[in-house]
Write a protein that binds this DNA or RNA. Structure first.
Lengths: 113, 113
DNA sequence: TACGCATATTCTAAAGTTCGAATATACTGG
DNA sequence: CCAGTATATTCGAACTTTAGAATATGCGTA
């Protein structure tokens, strides 16, 4: 059984393993939003946003509801927000050690440009 | 700020986004273990295990301590176990909806062989 | 029906991840 | 110093993920 559970958990983490998808999930934590609204709020490319939403849908982290022209997304289970909150605390409780990591991340990003 | 925080969270989720690494973290939840012990317990290839441990180390989810010949690993913060526990509950509270997902995963794996 | 808007899908190239095999490092006991 | 054990790193091939461009679908309204 463990095997399946590991796989399941890994799939969820992987689905959350992209900054844009984190941003989407956090935005949805404040309530249901249309795809268009998310795109505007987060400044995303339409196609790209749609792809990320499709990942979240495939892993069933979000639910979509069609209303006329638009598609409204919401979190399937607010427990996700709980998890993100825990990580925020984790982040702050290790700030100093984390900072060097963030600096590295930024340095890499700059280096790429 | 959000940007960096999203990136940071995404990095952590990604580090957890592999079944083997989940298994390692869960094993470490029961206390410090040597690399060799983990390898044996989880039935991993030595090099593969070492690579996964290196990912966890890079994201600072685990701490390593050298003792003579061996390297002992432990979780940097037990909050990770808390997150995994939450996900276990999540898993069971959506079992029926999840089952079809797991079946698909297995079907894909079979299809690949 | 035809148009326009919102969203999804498909495609391609680039980048990143994974595995196992081979090799390297580093410590211990003889 | 040598051999043996424990762990890490490097390499290449297969696979996956990503972004953006182009295209498709689906709905509402004229």
């Amino acid at each position: 059984m463990s095997q399946a559970l590991w796989q399941f958990k890994a799939e969820i983490f992987q689905a959350l393993g992209h900054p844009t998808r984190i941003a989407i999930v956090e935005a949805l934590g404040k309530g249901e939003q249309s795809a268009g609204h998310l795109i505007e709020k987060l400044g995303l490319e339409q196609a790209n946003a749609s792809q990320h939403l499709s990942v979240l849908r495939a892993k069933q982290l979000v639910i979509s509801r069609k209303e006329g022209n638009q598609v409204f997304y919401s979190l399937r289970d607010p427990v996700l927000i709980e998890v993100l909150e825990i990580l925020k605390r984790y982040f702050y409780s290790h700030v100093s050690q984390t900072m060097s990591m963030l600096k590295e991340i930024r340095a890499e990003q700059v280096a790429k440009k």
